[in-house]
């Protein structure tokens, strides 16, 4: 073997997969528990989704239970709650999108105009406090404020000549209440990411705009907003992907049977039917339907955004 070929073989050797795996065996060793975790707690449940197509029987287990195809899916589609659940889930996240999504952007823009650094920091710190408070505490406080007898809201209503109302017992108020709670809770925390993006907008652009005679509003419209549009789009993709996946935690604490008409969403329904009533296969089918729609929504928005604005998650 000539020295040149020996050189070549060794060179190839260094690029072979086996060589590279051996070279980073410490990293593999490190990663092992992580991959085991993901298999056990993320991918195993995904395979567990097969029970949506089976008649899950506790004694037989997941594999031995009988296949039933799309039985539980059609049961869900034909259920009299199907339309109501889709409508409630969609409307609640849609309101969140319309009112909750712009709120942090507006707050970030206003904070950005605040030149006093200390004051700005204090406001910021206070504004994201609710993000760290548990849902149970937030809903507990909320319920106290809405209380018919002594709640602040009803005191105000009465002071302005209205009659005391049990807001949480009337379907027509639920979406407003849920959306308001969401804004109160998320406005400060949501603004951080936009404020970070705002600091990256070059000051020279503002000066140029000023020289061209642009006022504050023009500056905001032509420089600030385009400057943070990438961040806005990324956040929007996430948000749209969640259009049919309203979390159950907050609603489970807030709702009651009297307001299922507007408050019951897919995730709370899965919880009640699937877990409380132990209709596992049915619950899994509804859950799978919900996650699939979420996946489709995320990838569609992502693809659209990639095409039209060159910004995307992946």
């Amino acid at each position: 073997m000539s020295p040149a070929t020996a050189q070549k073989t060794r060179h190839l050797d260094q690029h072979s997969a086996w060589y590279r795996i051996r070279k980073s065996k410490f990293l593999y060793l490190m990663f092992l528990p992580v991959i085991v975790y993901y298999i056990m707690f993320c991918y195993a449940p995904m395979f567990g989704l097969v029970i949506a197509f089976k008649d899950y029987n506790v004694f037989k287990g997941i594999w031995a239970s009988k296949w039933v195809g799309f039985k539980y899916f059609s049961q869900f589609f034909e259920s009299r709650f199907f339309f109501r659940l889709i409508r409630n889930t969609f409307l609640i996240s849609f309101y969140g999108l319309i009112f909750g999504f712009p709120a942090p952007i507006i707050l970030a823009l206003l904070l950005n105009e605040q030149k006093d650094g200390v004051f700005k920091r204090v406001v910021q710190t206070i504004s994201y406090l609710p993000h760290f408070i548990s849902t149970v505490v937030l809903v507990s406080m909320f319920v106290q404020f809405l209380s018919v007898n002594n709640g602040l809201i009803n005191n105000l209503v009465e002071a302005f000549g209205g009659t005391r109302t049990y807001f949480l017992g009337d379907p027509k108020y639920f979406r407003t209440l849920y959306t308001s709670l969401g804004i109160w809770r998320g406005i400060g925390w949501g603004s951080i990411i936009y404020l970070a993006a705002l600091t990256n907008v070059s000051p020279e652009l503002y000066e140029a705009c000023l020289i061209d005679g642009g006022g504050r509003l023009r500056q905001t419209w032509h420089i600030t907003l385009p400057g943070i549009s990438n961040t806005i789009i990324i956040m929007l993709i996430f948000r749209v992907g969640e259009l049919l996946s309203v979390g159950s935690e907050t609603i489970l604490l807030m709702y009651n049977e009297a307001i299922y008409e507007t408050a019951d969403v897919i995730s709370t329904y899965v919880y009640r039917r699937g877990l409380i009533n132990a209709e596992y296969s049915f619950g899994a089918a509804v859950g799978l339907f919900n996650s699939l729609i979420g996946l489709i929504l995320v990838s569609t928005t992502n693809a659209l955004s990639k095409r039209f604005s060159e910004t995307s998650l992946w």
Partner: peptide
Amino acid sequence: YGRSVFTFIVAFTMFFGGGLIPTYLI
């Protein structure tokens, strides 16, 4: 080696999961 594959395996779980019932059963 295989970083991108592992990153995908990990990141995919942010967009899709087994959901409440299968996770409970597992």
